[in-house]
């Protein structure tokens, strides 16, 4: 992950649910009531970069500031849906950078099952993407419906697969012209 990678930055900006373990004075504006304190046990959605930093660091009395929870897009509900049929889940509606977020979360939580579910569903969906990219028409516009459900990484994959198919097709038609 590069420092200037826009997708990495956007992944870090996705929100994850956090529970505050300590009372923080004056941070109430995060909750929407400025001027007040954030109480111990308050649940908030924070960007991943902030939540991760606060969860990993320790304060002066050696307690963690907050605990991270699994984001909704990786909940058991979604995992079951992915297990049942990965191809029909609209990942983009769950999180625009679903797999990148999943990979970051897997760094923080050890969850063998989640990891294998994610890679299995990526493989299943990649196959579908390859077929669509190969068979969709000359422009990307035809595939708009299909693209709607894909997360950013899958879209990138679709685009490259479509480009290379198109390059061969262009070469063949140029052969005919010459």
């Amino acid at each position: 992950m590069s420092y200037y990678d826009v997708d990495a930055i956007l992944t870090d900006a996705q929100k994850v649910p956090c529970t505050f373990e300590i009372t923080v004075p004056g941070l109430g504006y995060l909750e929407g009531n400025p001027g007040n304190d954030i109480k111990q046990g308050a649940k908030l959605e924070l960007p991943l970069w902030l939540g991760e930093m606060l969860a990993v660091s320790r304060n002066a009395s050696e307690e963690s500031n907050l605990t991270l929870d699994l984001p909704k897009c990786l909940s058991a509900h979604v995992v079951n849906a992915l297990k049942a049929d990965a191809r029909t889940v609209e990942l983009r509606a769950l999180a625009p950078h679903f797999y990148a977020l999943g990979a970051r979360i897997l760094d923080l939580f050890e969850d063998e099952e989640l990891s294998s579910v994610l890679s299995e569903s990526f493989k299943k969906r990649a196959r579908e993407i390859a077929d669509q990219a190969h068979n969709s028409g000359r422009s990307l516009g035809d595939a708009a419906d299909f693209l709607r459900g894909l997360d950013e990484e899958e879209r990138q994959l679709f685009r490259t697969a479509h480009e290379s198919t198109k390059a061969v097709r262009v070469w063949m038609s140029e052969l005919k012209k010459a």
Binding site: Y99, D107, S119, F122, A126, Q156
Partner: peptide
Amino acid sequence: SFICGVIDSLRKIGAAK
């Protein structure tokens, strides 16, 4: 490009594991 993309992504997902 497609195969490399798939392998890259799978590696990212499986990195933690």
